[in-house]
Amino acid sequence: MYKGASHKIWSVLMVSPFVIFFLLFWLLPLAFGAWISLHNWNISSGNLGFIGIENYKSILTPGTLYYDLFINGLKNTLYFVVISVPPLVLISLALALIIDNLPEKFKPVYRTIFFISYSISVTAVSAIFLWLFNGNGGYVNNVLESIGIISEPINWLGEQPYAWVTILIATVWWTIGFNMMLFINALDEVDGSLYEAADLDGAGAFSKFVSVTWPQIRNVAFFILIMTVIASFNLYGQTRLITAGGPEQSTNSLIMNIQTSVFSMNQLGIGSAMAIIMGFIMMLIIGFQYWISYRNKE
């Protein structure tokens, strides 16, 4: 079936809107970005000439301004990936296990409550946590002072490690529900008859999890891990709005610093090169995770 000229025309007509949009808004910017990264390209005065890989060189040469900017952002972003991925994966798994063990009639209510903050935008989340944790008149300080845990207000947003703690709490509160939903769905599909067999063997809750549950949700857990690493790598809104990159640029994320190079320094060429290097680093890390997981399967 589906032969002949009229079908060919139909098929082309149907696929072409997507292909046109894809070429215009993805492939063209990708190619254009690579081209820009080989030029001294100013955001306001435009192309100032071909310079080959000079942009990449200066980003990767220690001591230059752009190197410092890139490494500062990369270091902060990697730090955030390291501190945020374990809680985002492990706590979401714990929440999913709690939901899974609740009586059936309570499940939807708690699931909705744990997931509801995911519907809030990053900017509203930032507004809330900016004022919960504000050093001057923030609610958390007011409460801690009134019950006598602290005598001086903590400068949550202006001192480390408090600034990262605030960003981390905000991020966990905001996004953990999504990972939890993926885990809940995976747990729903775990073969229940295996639990009965484990019960007969007298297995405890922990050994049941290790021997029955974990092997069946491992693939989902890996998928969640990858998604979480990507999300944490793209850290932007929380640090832009809650800490504005401070204190002393310690929460400037890589995307923030790329934006700085493009808009504050006007260096679109440098910014495009930084974005491409960042893309490569992300692909390397994700590829490495795939490699580890496939190796473990064999």
Partner: peptide, 24 residues
């Protein structure tokens, strides 16, 4: 070719196209 591009695009982080798209 189209399918190949669809799959390749999934693997490439969005930050790479962001600023060039803005400039366009």
């Amino acid at each position: 070719v189209i399918l190949g591009m669809v799959f390749a695009a999934l693997a490439i982080p969005g930050i790479v196209t962001l600023f060039p798209a803005f400039y366009m």
